[in-house]
Simulated assay, not measured.
Amino acid sequence: MSKELFVRAEEVAGVLGISKPYAYKLVREMNEELKQKGFLTIPGRVSRNYFEEKFYGLRENQ
């Protein structure tokens, strides 16, 4: 994975080995969670840190 600030749905699909439509669904769900926490979001992209924390249990300070 590159170290860009956001991960696109296409990259989510490749990393997780899932279809693009399902990756877009996951990105929408993560963005909705972030919106509920008061963050701004970009359709089709999600924060790389949030994605890694959500799927790998990683935190920035680990």
Rank of each mutant, 00 (worst) to 15 (best):
P43F: 04
Y24V: 01
K20A: 06
Y22R: 15
L34H: 04
V7Y: 07
R45F: 15
K20S: 05
F51H: 06
F51D: 05
A13P: 02
E32R: 15
E32D: 15
V27L: 11
K20M: 09
K54A: 09
R8K: 13
R59W: 09
L34R: 15
Y50F: 15
E60A: 15
R48D: 02
G17Y: 08
G38V: 04
F39Q: 08
L16V: 08
R8W: 00
Q62G: 13
P21E: 04
R48W: 03
V27K: 11
Y56H: 10
G38N: 06
E11K: 12
M1H: 08
E4A: 13
T41S: 03
Y50R: 04
P21L: 07
S47V: 00
E4F: 06
G44N: 09
V27N: 06
K25P: 00
R28S: 14
N31T: 10
A9W: 01
E10D: 10
S47Q: 05
K37N: 07
E10P: 00
Y22M: 07
E53A: 13
T41Y: 01
K54C: 01
V15L: 14
V27I: 12
E4D: 12
Y22V: 05
L58R: 15
I42K: 15
L40M: 01
K35Y: 00
R59M: 08
Y24P: 01
Y50E: 08
E60V: 14
E29F: 05
G17T: 13
L58E: 14
L40R: 10
E29A: 13
V27P: 12
Y22H: 14
F51S: 05
E11N: 09
N61Q: 15
M30F: 11
E4S: 12
L34Y: 02
E29I: 08
R8A: 13
I42A: 09
M30G: 07
A13D: 00
I18P: 11
R48M: 08
I18T: 13
P43L: 06
S19I: 00
